[in-house]
Every structure is written in C-alpha cells, then in structure tokens.
Design a protein around this nucleic acid. Sequence first.
DNA 1: TCTTTTTGGTTGGTTGACCAATTTATTTTT
DNA 2: AAAAATAAATTGGTCAACCAACCAAAAAGA
Lengths: 189, 189
Amino acid sequence: MKQDKKQKIVEAASKLFAEKGYEKASIKEIAKEAGITSGLVHYYFQNKEEVLSDVVLEASHQYTRDMQALKQAVPEGQLAESAMQATKDRVQKHPDWYRLRYELFAIGLRNPHFAEKVNQIIDNGQSGISNLLKPMMPNAEEKDVAAVAAILLACFDGLALQKMLNPDFDLDRAYLVLEKMAMSLQEEE
Amino acid sequence: MKQDKKQKIVEAASKLFAEKGYEKASIKEIAKEAGITSGLVHYYFQNKEEVLSDVVLEASHQYTRDMQALKQAVPEGQLAESAMQATKDRVQKHPDWYRLRYELFAIGLRNPHFAEKVNQIIDNGQSGISNLLKPMMPNAEEKDVAAVAAILLACFDGLALQKMLNPDFDLDRAYLVLEKMAMSLQEEE
DNA sequence: TCTTTTTGGTTGGTTGACCAATTTATTTTT
DNA sequence: AAAAATAAATTGGTCAACCAACCAAAAAGA
C-alpha cells in the first residue's frame, strides 16, 4: 500500500521528467499525475531531489529487467541479433524512455551530486551488453569487451537521439552498418 | 557595439545553461555573468527561449569552425587521425561544451519547437565527419558514409558522456577499439 | 484508541516579463 | 564646430505567477 503510492509517484515523475524536464515538472503536477495531492509527495520524499533519486534508480533497473527477459525468451544463437532488433524497436515504441534517459544524462553532467547515480544507469546497460558480447568474443580481453559494450551503448543512445530529433533519419541503415562494424571485430579476434 | 553585448549574452547563457541547465539559469544571472542588467537581455531578446535559440545556433557553428581550422592545419594524410585525437582531447579540455550539448539534446527531445534547431547541431557535426570520411571510403554509397558518420558522432558524444560521469572510464582504450572498428570498415569496401 | 496515511492550504522566496526613466551615441541644424 | 534634436542603449525596479517545502488537522486503518 505504501509502496503502491510511492511507486505511482516515481512513475508519474518519470513521465513528467521526460516530457517537461526535471526543473519544470512541479511536485504539484507530479502529484496530480499520480492521483494524489502534493503534500503526500513530501510525506514519502523529503524533497524533489529524492524523487529524482528514485527515478534514476528505477530507470537503471528497468533496462536490466528487459535484458534478462530477452535472454530467457530467445535461443542463444539469435540473442545478439534479437537484442539489436529490440534496441532498434525501442526507439519507436518507448521514446519517453530515451527522453528520460537524456534528461538524466544532462542532470548528471551538471550536478556532481547525481553524476554517480546517473552513471549506474549507464553501467547497468554496459554490463548487460558485455554479457551478451562475451560469448561472441571469447579470445578478447575483458577490458576490450567492456570497451566494445561502451561503444555500442553510445551508438544505441546516439542513434536514438538522431532518429527522435529527425524522423527522416535512416535508422535501419545505421543499424545495418553498425552490425557490420561489430561483426568485423568478431572475425578479427 | 550592439553585437558586442548580444554576443556577451549568448556566451554567458551558454556557460550557465551548461552549468545549471536551461530552466535554472535565470535571466538575471545571465545578465550578471555578461556584466549587464536583466532589462537589457529583454532589449535584445523577446524572451528566454530566444536566447536559447541563439545559443543553439552558436553551438552549431562552433563545431564547423573547429573542423575547418583542423582541416587547414593538418596534412591530408593525418587528417582522420588528428580529428579523432582532437575529439578525444576535447572531452578533457572543454567539458562545458559537452555539458551544453547534452543540455540542448534534452531540450530538443522534450520541446518539439526546438527539435529542428537542435538537430542542426547534430547535422553540422555529421556532415563535418562525412567530409573527412569520403576520401577514405571512395567506393561506398553516400548514404553509407552518412551512416558511418552518424555512428561515429554517436560514439564521440556517448563516450564523452561516460568519461565525464565516471572519470575512471578508460577513454583511450575505447577510442583504440573504435578506430579498429572504423578501419575494418575501410578495408572491406 | 492510537497510528498511519492523506488532505488542503499557507509561506517565503524566486522567476520571467515588462516598463518608465536615465544615460549614451548619432544625426541634424545653425 | 557647437548646439539641438533624435534615436539607441541601459538601468533599476515592479508585478503577477509559480514553486518547494512545510504543517495542522482530517480521514482511514489497525
């Protein structure tokens, strides 16, 4: 029950942070979106920053959950291909997810107090990708696998950004080229 | 003279938008940073959004200028390598530049009114990279060159983000791997 | 009854927009 | 070239709107 309302607040905040940005999303609005009053937000959270903290935490878990769900739903041979496809589809299906992501990136960059927390979101994604990558690069050093994961993650976010800012952007072709680049790396090892 | 003060406002706004974000950087503060009073900001700009517009415009020009300067300063053979190095160095030398960039990305994503303008910043970077790439991929279709440029740009931004959020991130290794990936693409064509 | 949850309204402070008045620069007239 | 007139630049402050934080009291639940 308590968790219920708290969860609703985090969800409402995530949505509004993505839509209007952290600063412009007021606590009253968040409360309204969650179907409660503003006072209750302060009952569960000391201040707005604490709400943001929980939003960041939730965002970092979400990707891990999705990744593990995929891992269990798809045979190992097609895992890399499916992950790539799923990531590409996510741009169209959950633009708010990326909007929130970029909002949090910006907050992390300008607020050292949150940099570490926002970094967890990236780390989560990176280690998820690394796990998929390891079986495909058996001879590579762990650090190189991490580097490739970092690069792929950067591409996923960056290409999503370009597609969202410019609907004419050819996301499919970009992913085709990206796959080619990734594959070439595999053969070389 | 008129341009002098206007330019100062844009510079001050760029700095503060990068440091505190668009919403939290007040017009009074921007004016103070520029060494004037808030009323003058409204003399040159109708509202805060117009200031942001000019900041975006200036940001999109800056990269082009830097790119062209590099093109004239470095022999053609080392151009790709130098551009890569310069981009890597920029993370350490001008973190504010990336902070502003991500702030603008977030604004563009949540504000359709600015999406197109922010997209210009990306397009500028992309076409700059494309020009460097073309001589290296003579047999590739133009669309593929653009795709590679989009991927590289995404990597530059994403890796910079990771380095800034986490100083322990091994940027050098990531760039090493990235170069390897880019090179493999060249050989294949 | 006693505690937890929830409300609704208050408060001190900040902000963007706006403007009347003053100063500085430019042009015109003598 | 000095003086007068006009235009441009700049100030300082006002104002309504908004917000985060807070709290006393009501409602719900145990």
